[in-house]
Design a binder for these strands. Sequence first.
DNA 1: AAAGGATAGTTCGCCAGTGAAGTAATTAGG
DNA 2: CCTAATTACTTCACTGGCGAACTATCCTTT
Lengths: 172, 172
Amino acid sequence: MHECLDHMVEGIGRVREIFPELPLQEVVLTRLLLMVGGNLLGELERNLKPHGLNDSDFRTLMMLYSRPTGSATPSELCGYAQQGATNMTRIANVLVKAGLITRAPSAEDRRRIVLSITAAGRRLVRKILPPLFPSVHGAFASISAADKRTLERLLRQIAVNIDSLTQPDTRP
Amino acid sequence: MHECLDHMVEGIGRVREIFPELPLQEVVLTRLLLMVGGNLLGELERNLKPHGLNDSDFRTLMMLYSRPTGSATPSELCGYAQQGATNMTRIANVLVKAGLITRAPSAEDRRRIVLSITAAGRRLVRKILPPLFPSVHGAFASISAADKRTLERLLRQIAVNIDSLTQPDTRP
DNA sequence: AAAGGATAGTTCGCCAGTGAAGTAATTAGG
DNA sequence: CCTAATTACTTCACTGGCGAACTATCCTTT
């Protein structure tokens, strides 16, 4: 990945000779962020695959696990996990088929479905979550606590910036 | 995205009450990184879509554009762009069909194919690249030059860490 | 209480990416 | 040299995700 990165920076530099107004550092950061994100996701899923889950499935399961009631509706999960309703349906199908969650019609609103984590689902979380910690920790090894806080601050700032790029301005 | 983030941090906090050894900050950073990366990519592709390209297509085109010769073989591009050969074949098909690159057999090694950017390809780059700059710049707005350098350093460190997670150790 | 609109979930068809297997050309070993 | 291993690219089948269209239920307005 390191070699790939160097090559990329070199290429961006050459392009900048043709477009002098190219924001060099920002483009490098963008590519770097995308590359690191992609590889981080890959590493995560490499750990999840043996259990037959991908990151979306896992995230959904964890969201149910983390709820005090152990249940939620698909649309709630969509909001929290930044996923389309379409995809949520598919994920729920997978998890239900695996016996990790149940699907039940809601009593007070018959349009709704309530997804609830099962005992097997909780058992699986207890089984696969702890072995994930070393990898997560490893990805940020040799980064000081202060730097981690800085990183979080900067990433949050980027998040805010992207939000305001997407929705030009939210005003009455 | 901000709301979604807060909810996520809250959920991670609840899970940590059950697994006290959960590396809170690292997990938050991981999720933050993945979320920001995803949205950044989305924003990028939103700008590319009107031209019928996605990020992979665009990256590949840019890689050819940035080469002094304007050409490369698929496997070279795979290495630089972190993509499988399979996908490179498909991307090349797309770009060839759009008339942005050409596919020609290599003279000195007949297994190889040489992809070369066409005049139309260069024209398209000149057309769509500059309008991208404001978005890229905007994503990192209100971040100081020093912070940007810090961000680059930290992301590079994470890249190195992930690399060494993936390949336990490269030694003779 | 009936009509129009909003919301929840599903289905369908498409695009993007991957692993495994296949073909063809080159290189290495005996 | 001729076989075996390697390398380059392609094809196929599958997973993952998305937008658009559909159905069913609820809410609002009159």
